[in-house]
Amino acid sequence: MNIEEFREYCLGKAGATESTPFGGDTLVFKVADKIFALTSIGDFESGINLKCVPEHAVELREKYACVLPGYHMNKKHWNTILPNGSVPDALLQQWIDDSYQLVISKLPKATKLLFGF
């Protein structure tokens, strides 16, 4: 997966938006103003940060060499995935889906209704 495919996939999620709130090099994807994914625009290969259930985050780090504790993020809740081709795009997409769903699951009921979740 390259950065264009990653961006397209994230923006294909219902209610997803993109912004650069941390400076021009960090591309952030949010749903209902909550981050579910971020990456470097200039150095995509340095990793994609995705939210993850803490127990599952540790399992993924143990199973896949390309999955690391979240860089510059809460390492309990975030993983950094190196998009180096060592896992299939379908698996990376599943991890993006999981991050997105995790964020949606934590939204207040009124926000979910507003966004149609």
Rank of each mutant, 00 (worst) to 15 (best):
N2I: 03
E4D: 15
E4G: 13
E5C: 04
E5P: 02
F6L: 11
F6M: 07
F6H: 07
R7M: 01
Y9L: 06
L11S: 11
G12K: 02
G12F: 08
K13P: 02
A14F: 09
G15D: 04
G15I: 01
A16M: 05
A16T: 01
E18K: 11
S19Q: 01
T20Q: 12
T20H: 13
P21C: 07
F22Q: 01
G23F: 15
G23W: 14
T26M: 15
L27R: 05
F29A: 05
V31Q: 09
A37C: 09
A37M: 09
A37Q: 09
A37D: 10
L38I: 04
T39N: 10
S40C: 10
G42P: 08
G42Y: 08
D43T: 08
D43E: 15
G47E: 01
G47S: 09
N49K: 04
N49M: 09
V53K: 15
P54W: 12
E55N: 14
E55W: 13
V58L: 14
V58A: 14
E59M: 14
E59C: 13
L60I: 02
L60M: 14
R61C: 09
K63V: 00
K63E: 15
Y64F: 14
A65H: 14
A65M: 06
L68N: 07
P69D: 00
P69T: 01
P69R: 01
G70E: 06
M73P: 02
M73D: 08
N74T: 07
N74M: 13
N74K: 11
K75I: 04
H77T: 01
W78F: 13
L82I: 15
L82N: 03
L82Q: 05
P83W: 05
P83M: 04
P83D: 02
N84W: 10
N84K: 08
G85K: 10
S86L: 12
V87C: 09
P88F: 06
A90N: 09
A90Q: 12
L92N: 02
Q94S: 14
W95Y: 15
D97R: 13
S99I: 00
Y100D: 00
Y100M: 05
Y100T: 00
L102T: 06
S105A: 14
K106N: 02
P108G: 02
K109M: 00
T111Q: 06
L113Q: 13
F115T: 00
F117E: 00
F117L: 10
